[in-house]
């Protein structure tokens, strides 16, 4: 085991996969000489050279399209969004090409591309740098979406994403980069996409979350356990395809569901999960499923306003108790 910070774990994953497969390369703004906005690719250009650690001009739509073309022709690009919000400028290339092109080409071309980078609500970064894109991209056919919660998860999932033959959006949370964890020192340590992780077993309620909100949930759970409750906590890891089976299995035990997400409430993943639970596990519910999500507002700069924009541990404690007492 090696103790690694979140951003170091990502770097390890990239290095291992680049050493394993010469077709893997990294591109994006400041990924080379500067080492990436969160230092994920620091010094890697020295090892891999300019073409495999490709510093691009600030032209998100076109370097994303370039990555698509390279992927169609056999390379395996890892595209870093300096801030994932910037990739709204590349929505068409990611959706039309990354998501749909395999289908429209009748299966002839695949786009094995990872689109990764920092996002989420940080510390007073303002609305445009505090974006959560998972719901925006969720409906696009063909895309896979991953959002890791810890360094170990980040490494195992990123390696799986790089080896995957589809376009995978890999959302890293800005406030998790300096999290530390012990990680297995094994080049083939992989966490398969599409499998959720039961972090804590319990019988009273199922709390489903992903990325940074997992940590808010775990804080809340500490208090709930101290009060005698036994919540079950599921880290989704992969948002699409969704591991509905693991949620359903948990509901058969707890019969209560709370979803905690940092994305907007409207049109968000929580609403989608509730609809799926209605379709597949309605009879298991003893109370209506509840979602805690961000307020439907551009993230405000002010620190207090920003804090109440996203779900906090006390919100989770309150909603969980209401549900368990219902």
């Amino acid at each position: 085991m090696a103790s690694r910070l979140f951003f170091e774990a990502l770097r390890d994953a990239i290095v291992e996969e680049m050493d394993r497969d010469p077709n893997v390369f990294v591109l994006g703004e400041d990924v080379g000489h500067y080492g990436g906005s969160y230092k994920v690719t620091k010094d890697l250009h020295r090892k891999y050279g300019e073409l495999r650690m490709l510093d691009t001009p600030i032209a998100e739509a076109s370097f994303s399209g370039l990555a698509v073309g390279a992927a169609m022709c056999g390379l395996r690009p890892i595209l870093e969004g300096m801030n994932m919000g910037f990739l709204l400028l590349a929505f068409s290339q990611i959706a039309n090409n990354g998501g749909m092109l395999r289908y429209t080409s009748g299966g002839q071309f695949t786009v094995p591309m990872v689109v990764r980078g920092p996002g989420g609500v940080g510390r007073q970064l303002g609305a445009e740098h505090s974006q959560r894109l998972e719901a925006y991209f969720y409906a696009v056919p063909g895309l896979k979406i991953v959002a890791p919660s810890t360094p170990k998860e980040a490494k195992g999932l990123l390696k799986a994403a790089i080896r995957d033959n589809n376009t995978v959006l890999f959302f890293e949370h800005v406030l998790l980069y300096n999290l530390r964890e012990d990680i297995p020192e094994d080049d083939d340590f992989i966490i398969p996409l599409g499998k959720a992780n039961v972090l804590r077993e319990g019988e009273d309620i199922t709390i489903v979350s992903y990325s940074r909100m997992v940590h808010h949930c775990l804080q809340a759970v500490d208090s709930l356990v101290a009060e005698g409750y036994e919540p079950e906590v599921i880290d989704l890891r992969t948002l699409k395809p969704l591991d509905l089976e693991t949620i359903g299995k948990s509901l058969k035990k707890t019969h209560r569901l709370l979803i905690v997400e940092e994305d907007y409430k409207t049109g968000g993943l929580g609403g989608e999960i509730i609809a799926l639970i209605d379709e597949h596990y309605f009879d298991e519910l003893d109370a209506p499923a509840v979602r805690l999500a961000s307020k439907d507002i551009p993230t405000p700069y002010n620190g207090r306003m920003e804090a109440v924009t996203i779900p906090q541990p006390e919100d989770i404690i309150r909603e969980a108790k209401k549900l368990m007492e219902a």
Binding site: L51, R52, A61, S62, G65, L66, G69, M72, Q93, N97
Partner: peptide, 21 residues
């Protein structure tokens, strides 16, 4: 103009093929 960046990507791959691989 959607295909222009994609084509730039295939050309990038051709350069990569020569210079990296």
């Amino acid at each position: 103009a959607e295909g222009i960046p994609v084509a730039t990507g295939s050309a990038f791959k051709s350069k990569y093929l020569k210079e990296v691989l």
